[in-house]
Nucleic acid binder design. Structure first.
Lengths: 329, 329
DNA sequence: GTGAAAGCGCTAACAT
DNA sequence: ATGTTAGCGCTTTCAC
């Protein structure tokens, strides 16, 4: 049985209210008493019980952060941003990983709500926003990060994926590559759709005769690799590939290189995210950069705003994407 | 103000004890009553308060996982293993990232203890074990992962770093490379030291005339890169490099390649961890593999054992490292 | 099958 | 400056 403030009070022969006051640096405690309390707390290895504290204070100073894939370097970067900002504001953050499973996502939302986190930042697996909203029913403010949301009452911060897709594709078109394929995922769907929309827009804009070439697979690390391998086996290789994210681009790159094709001479590749690896010498992946860390920080700032004034109107922040051209295209 | 079981009870004109029973699927509740309770709970958007529940039950079904660097692909993999195992056992896990800051690590230990997690899995930043132990004073079971511990009363699961360092260096020696440098970090110290010890052992074993060549820097993503750049600038490039981990190896690789040197013809490189990238075609990094996912799963299994029988003797698991030879050496 | 009541560890009035 | 007390939301005896 852990030590409580009552144990301290008993040992000192004082009331436990005084102990509480001393421990929390409140006014009206004799400096000497406080000193004694602090000392016995130390010697008894007292640890305050945040469950009890949260229960009475109706505050936990904790937020939840739910990400779909901790294995994709993009999300850890965002997470660090959130963490930095939260830490500075006196909040601690509980990070949960859903591994692209929608069921887990809802589980964690429920769990975090039950643990009474004061806010939630979610990089959703798909268009689960509706479900999440009904699950929370406005009880806890939510900020969606790296994912736009259709329903107008929810706040999000994301990059302009359509524009990003457009920029990437435009670049490939201007380089004269033809045909250009889009390599995407089923999950991650809204993000995926938007980037794909940008791709199609660019195609239409510049060359309406070119049909979209969509390679869509499930979101596993090997998907992009496999899809490209199949195309190569069929001798049906596109001149250029725009991948929904850098991990997919890397998978494609791997497949292309393993089959002795050169980048960009045989196949040009563009990704999305600008993960640390993209700038690596032998990778040199052209990609649409996202301000990951900043997105995390901003997400927390938005959340804090909603935590302090829940009635404020939802914020919908769309960041400008920025194409980073490297040797892969 | 959130909905409580009292609200449900009031609306139904029953006592809230019954509501609690119904909600928890306890015996002795009229099926019809239960049904009604469930329905009103739903319609009122009731969410149970885990703070209150944990307070009375003295259980939270939650564990904490503290990692030093979520940005290093090694840790997310371990984290997934922990999560999988924990989830299966009905525990949820709160992941905390210390960013290699010892102060933060202690902060999180304290925080998680106050939140009454039932167990802690820590991949420590350094030899903080002593401090952590005194902080917890046996109140919460701890498993150290990916880090051996000197004090015999603590449990850990780690790879045999000395052996790993030995294997890597032995490989480079047998390839005939000379001189061989060790590229390590200040932080991560015990792990670092052990791998370095293995390196020195191999050197002594095979060629006692060769002096250890130690390149030690702080643990930032750019450190390895910078150190190697300096050596290259000085025209003082070792024939081979054994790096404390794959991220360092990658940094070295980047420096080497940017300066027009070839791998392994000019400089051979070996890493440690076998992160997903290591097998990438144009990387092909020889490395000491660690069973990351399994380590996470085992860590949880060990923790569970200690949570159920806290008096059981500490377990000290040392896994066998496995050298994966690729083109970089 | 259900209600009344105690109590988990703590904070915050309200007294003194 | 300190003690007393109520109560946060819940589970769990113990009655009935």
């Amino acid at each position: 049985m852990p030590v409580t403030i009552k144990d301290i009070a008993r040992q000192l022969g004082i009331s436990y209210a005084t102990v509480s006051r001393a421990l929390n640096n409140k006014y009206g405690v004799d400096p000497q008493t406080r000193q004694q309390v602090l000392e016995t707390a130390q010697s008894l290895h007292y640890r305050r019980n945040d469950l009890a504290r949260g229960l009475v204070k109706q505050r936990t100073a904790t937020i939840g952060l739910i990400v779909p894939d901790i294995t994709n370097p993009f999300y850890p970067e965002v997470a660090r941003g959130v963490e930095e900002a939260a830490h500075e504001a006196g909040y601690s953050v509980f990070l949960c990983n859903t591994a692209w499973e929608q069921e887990r996502e809802l589980l964690y939302v429920r769990l975090l709500a039950e643990k009474r986190v004061e806010g939630l930042i979610i990089a959703p697996t798909a268009q689960t926003a509706e479900t999440i909203e009904t699950l929370l029913t406005g009880q806890i403010p939510v900020i969606y990060v790296s994912d736009t949301q259709n329903n107008l009452h929810s706040s999000f911060i994301a990059i302009d994926n359509v524009r990003g897709g457009y920029l990437a594709t435009e670049h490939l078109i201007q380089k004269g590559y033809y045909p250009i394929a889009y390599l995407g995922a089923l999950e991650d769907s809204l993000t995926n759709e938007e980037r794909c929309t940008g791709y199609i827009q660019a195609l239409k804009q510049y060359n309406f005769s070119e049909e979209p070439l969509l390679y869509i697979g499930s979101y596993h690390s090997q998907t992009a690799y496999q899809i490209m391998c199949e195309r190569i086996a069929e001798s049906n290789v596109p001149r250029a590939v725009f991948a929904v994210n850098d991990l997919f681009a890397l998978g494609a790159m791997q497949a292309v290189r393993e089959h002795g094709l050169r980048i960009p001479q045989d196949v040009a590749i563009v990704g999305f995210d600008d993960i640390p690896l993209a700038s690596f010498p032998e990778i040199q992946l052209t990609t649409v950069a996202q301000p990951k860390r900043e997105m995390g920080q901003l997400a927390f700032a938005m959340l804090q705003q909603r935590m302090t004034s829940p009635t404020s109107p939802p914020q919908r922040t769309l960041l400008e994407p920025h194409l980073v051209i490297r040797k892969s295209s």
